[in-house]
């Protein structure tokens, strides 16, 4: 086993996915198969190989510090599931940092 059901439940919390018990069971099995398969990348001895994070050899791509028009607030809040007083209304946020 590469991954336990508890770990899957932990990942689901980290990823903010409210999975039910059946989904967790189903997913645990599938993730185990997939992770076992992709773990093959570890077969490649690559201690001295630098990792590639970007497919283009670009550096220092900047924009000038200049204003561009913002969106109209009506358009912004029209997208919101709930809005109030010009702001996005969201459910209570738990007291954690």
């Amino acid at each position: 086993m590469t991954i336990t059901r508890d770990e899957v439940a932990h990942l689901a919390r980290l990823a903010r996915l409210a999975l039910d018990e059946t989904e967790l069971d189903h997913l645990s099995g599938q993730l185990d198969v997939i992770l076992n398969s992709v773990a093959r990348v570890r077969e490649v001895a690559a201690a001295d190989i630098p990792p590639t994070s970007h497919a283009v050899p670009l550096t220092n791509v900047f924009r000038p510090d200049a204003l561009r028009p913002s969106l109209a607030r009506e358009e912004v809040l029209a997208m919101a599931p709930a809005a109030e007083e010009g702001r996005f209304r969201v459910p209570r946020i738990l007291d954690e940092v």
């Binding site: 992709v38 990348v41 570890r42 490649v44 190989i49 630098p50 990792p51 590639t52």
Partner: peptide, 9 residues
């Protein structure tokens, strides 16, 4: 990390 190295290879 290892997958990124495979990418280099």
């Amino acid at each position: 990390g290892q997958a990124q190295k495979v990418r280099t290879l």
